[in-house]
């Protein structure tokens, strides 16, 4: 049977454009975030708590360690600020997968699938709302850091650049979180996977100490750890200098010697993880038959 030669049947003029569909889904997920202030508070609190704890406990030791690694005259607070925003990027990206699990369990996923909205717009709208929330977190954490005496050497432009790096960093982790969500369809499993990854990824990277001051085995892991590239890109914008130690790049000069390779790595991760996640979700929307 084919549609060819079939009588014209009832049809509707659908008002939605691609942007319209994205906006509809953006509003839905933004509203859900507003209705869940506890989640917003906890995500932000964990990152702020880490920032305060690390600067209070390791402030002096950390300052000595980073001085020895070549960061003379840099306080530990601006050095560790990038770790706090990368941490909040990871926890907020995990929530993205939890939202998908909820939709899968309540049937909203199916309901949205059977609507005429474009599937790409559904995903883009959800991601946009989650990334908007993340950008708000980044500004809150940096606001607190600035109030505590840190400075962003690249100024306001650099601050927006930091938000952009966080978005690029969050995208791959968000894709990973959604991929795990669609495979397991279970909140507890996803939560366990998220917690399992969070601390090893943060500690086996340049988040709290320069890579050169880490044990040799840890340095190997840090070189292939995406957190290192996210943190270094943000740190370069905070400190206004090249901080990337895992790859030696001198072709661009200054901050760009860190930003260009780090952003290239993050973009590649976004493409790979994004493709896997979209493929898995495509399967979940109806092609699981033989």
């Amino acid at each position: 049977m084919s549609s060819a030669g079939v009588d014209a049947g009832p049809s509707r003029s659908v008002e939605n454009s691609l942007v319209g569909d994205i906006w509809v889904n953006f509003k839905r997920w933004a509203r859900k975030a507003i209705r869940n202030p506890t989640v917003v508070f906890l995500e932000l609190f964990m990152a702020v708590f880490s920032l305060l704890m690390f600067t209070a406990v390791f402030g002096d030791v950390g300052t000595l360690a980073i001085e020895r690694a070549g960061f003379e005259g840099v306080g530990y607070l601006p050095f560790v600020l990038p770790a706090a925003v990368v941490q909040v990027s990871m926890s907020s990206s995990l929530s993205s997968g939890l939202g998908l699990v909820e939709d899968l369990q309540t049937g909203m996923f199916e309901k949205v699938t059977v609507s005429p909205m474009r599937w790409t717009a559904v995903l883009a709208g959800k991601a946009a709302a989650e990334l908007f929330r993340l950008v708000c977190y980044v500004f809150v954490i940096f606001g607190l850091g600035l109030a505590m005496g840190a400075t962003v050497e690249t100024g306001l432009v650099g601050l927006f650049g930091i938000a952009l790096v966080c978005v690029l960093f969050a995208l791959w982790y968000m894709a990973l979180s959604n991929a795990v969500a669609v495979v397991t369809r279970d909140e507890e499993t996803l939560d366990a996977v998220g917690n399992l990854l969070l601390f090893p990824l943060l500690f086996l990277s340049s988040a709290f100490l320069p890579v050169s001051s880490l044990p040799e085995a840890v340095q190997v892991v840090a070189m292939v750890n995406p957190v290192t590239y996210g943190v270094d890109a943000i740190r370069a914008l905070v400190l206004g200098r090249d901080v990337l130690t895992v790859v030696e790049v001198t072709a661009f000069g200054g901050v760009s010697d860190t930003l260009v390779p780090a952003l290239a790595v993050l973009c590649a991760l976004d493409v790979v993880f994004g493709a896997v996640s979209v493929w898995l979700m495509g399967r979940a929307t109806g092609s699981e038959v033989m």
């Binding site: 509203r31 209705r35 869940n36 309540t106 049937g107 909203m108 199916e110 309901k111």
Partner: peptide
């Protein structure tokens, strides 16, 4: 199964 967004 009921499919409504319970937060909305």
């Amino acid at each position: 199964d009921v499919s409504v967004d319970e937060e909305l």
